[in-house]
Amino acid sequence: MTLCVTFSLVTGIVWVSSDSEDTPSGTAARGSDAAGGGREPFRRAPHTPGEHVPASHAPLVPSRPLKVTIPAIFIEAPVTGLGLDAKGRLKAPPLSKPKLTGWYERGPSPGEDGTALLVGHRDTRTGPAIFLNLNALRRGDKVNVVRADRRTAVFTVDAVKTYTKDKFPDDKVYGETGRPELRLLTCGGRFDAKAGYSANVVVFAHLTALGKAA
C-alpha cells in the first residue's frame, strides 16, 4: 500500500514511503488527519506574515550530513544516505528505525549550493516516527545539520506547506534557487486505508549561519 508519494520533474525523484508494514497506527489508521500512535500532534502558533527573512549564508563545501536537530519541536536524529530504487523512486529510511532521517545523497549536501533533501516517516505501524510534528514548524525556526566536516549548517525556516499528491509543485520544492536551501519532507493530510496519506508536508528553509564545530 502506498502511503506517501512525491514526484520531481526537476531531479527525477519519486519518494514513496510505502511498504506492507508501513501502516500508521492508532488515530491515523482510522482515517483522522491526526498523526498515528494514538497521540495528538504537537501544535504551535501559525506563521506570522511579514516576518523578516535573514539573508543567506555563503555556500559550504560538500560534506555528508550526520545528524539533524530541530529545537522548536524537540527533534534530534541521525541521518542516513538514501538512493533510488530500481524504479527510480527515492528510498525511505528503514521502517525498523522510525527515528532515523534520510538524505538524498545524489543531491546537494545540506549547506552546499543547491537544494538538499531530508525525508522522514511521520508514523509507522509501531507508532509515531521522527517527523510526526513537522507541520508544527513556523517561519523563523531553526534546523541544524551536523556534517562530517564537523561544521553545523544552521537553516532558517521560510515556510511550511502541505501539498496534495496531485498538486505537488515539483519545481518549487526541488528546483534550484541560487542559494543553499533545505527541504524536509514527510507524509501529511488525511489517511485513507486504500490510498494512504493524501498529501506531503514540506518545510522550506535556507542556510543562514554556521554553528559551533561538532
Rank of each mutant, 00 (worst) to 15 (best):
R179K: 15
T208Q: 05
A148P: 10
H206S: 06
T11F: 04
G111F: 03
P128A: 10
A153T: 11
P169A: 11
P24W: 00
S56V: 08
T80L: 02
A129Q: 06
L82N: 01
I75G: 01
N200V: 00
T27H: 14
H206A: 08
V173G: 03
K212R: 15
G114S: 14
H206F: 04
D149L: 02
I70H: 06
G37S: 02
N200D: 03
D33W: 15
G196E: 04
A193V: 14
R179S: 14
A116L: 04
M1L: 11
T23W: 11
G12W: 02
L182H: 03
G83A: 04
S17E: 10
S56A: 15
G120M: 00
A205Q: 02
A159V: 02
R44W: 10
D192R: 06
F204G: 00
A72M: 12
V154K: 06
R39V: 14
C187R: 00
V157P: 02
R106A: 12
A159Y: 06
L100D: 00
L182W: 01
A199Y: 00
P71V: 07
F7M: 12
M1E: 05
D170T: 15
F42L: 15
R139D: 14
G175T: 04
Y197H: 07
E112S: 10
D149E: 08
I75A: 02
P24A: 05
G107M: 02
V14L: 06
N144Y: 09
M1N: 10
V201T: 11
V5M: 07
G36T: 05
A205C: 01
P54F: 10
